[in-house]
């Protein structure tokens, strides 16, 4: 089954490469909860289409359904790159409603949010398996990147031979350490940015065009 699946992916990827002019790449924005994925998705969408993708929040698991923004045309050096971006729920191995009680949430709401967040993780993993051609992996550079989730997801992405761009987000924070992320994943290029402030977005778009164009 695994061999067949890998073969199918390889064929579909080769086909999509052949017809890349016609079919925009579908780029999944992945990462742990509260890394700034939706903030980045909104930044990209607003910069190139004027619309936002979804609401941002400091409460974890605000995004509990994958949201897609299609046919974003990014211009770089006179060329254009068309991508669809998929903002996915934060991936985690544990969801606990008590985490939300600290944010002035009623228990019923917290339990429901927890369940929806869990469904969201399942959905994100499903998208990763079936529906993305490349990954923008967003990390909060003010936190430790050596986690089970990060290691596992990067491993899955690598095993699928998907192009991946690692973004060290939240460089506006005092505790930010881009080098820590570079050290964690030395096999990949790490781009620092602050999606909230819009810092270093030009380099991000350059790399998007380079990796997914």
């Amino acid at each position: 089954m695994g061999l067949i699946r890998n073969l199918k992916h390889s064929i579909s990827r080769a086909v999509s490469t052949l017809f890349s002019e016609e079919n925009p790449k579908r780029i999944g924005i992945y990462g742990p909860p509260n890394a700034g994925k939706t903030t980045l998705a909104n930044r990209i969408a607003r910069d190139w289409t004027g619309d936002a993708v979804g609401p941002e929040s400091h409460i974890p698991h605000e995004t509990r359904r994958a949201r897609r923004k299609e046919d974003i045309e990014i211009e770089r050096d006179g060329a254009t790159v068309n991508i669809d971006i998929v903002d996915t729920p934060g991936v985690t191995t544990k969801v606990d409603y008590e985490e939300f009680l600290d944010h002035d949430m009623e228990k019923d709401d917290a339990v429901r949010r927890s369940r929806e967040a869990t469904e969201g993780v399942a959905e994100a993993m499903h998208w990763l398996r079936e529906d993305v051609d490349g990954v923008i992996y967003v990390l909060d550079s003010s936190t430790d990147p050596f986690t089970q989730v990060n290691t596992m997801l990067i491993g899955i992405i690598e095993s699928q031979d998907l192009p991946v761009l690692i973004l060290a987000n939240k460089t506006d924070l005092e505790e930010s350490s881009v080098q820590r992320i570079r050290n964690a994943f030395p096999q990949h290029e790490t781009i620092p940015l602050s999606a909230l402030e819009g810092d270093n977005m030009d380099e991000v778009y350059d790399k998007i065009a380079e990796y997914f164009g």
């Binding site: 544990k94 409603y97 917290a110 927890s114 369940r115």
Partner: peptide
């Protein structure tokens, strides 16, 4: 209810 562990 409300507490889950996920096998990614």
């Amino acid at each position: 209810p409300g507490q889950y562990e996920l096998n990614l």
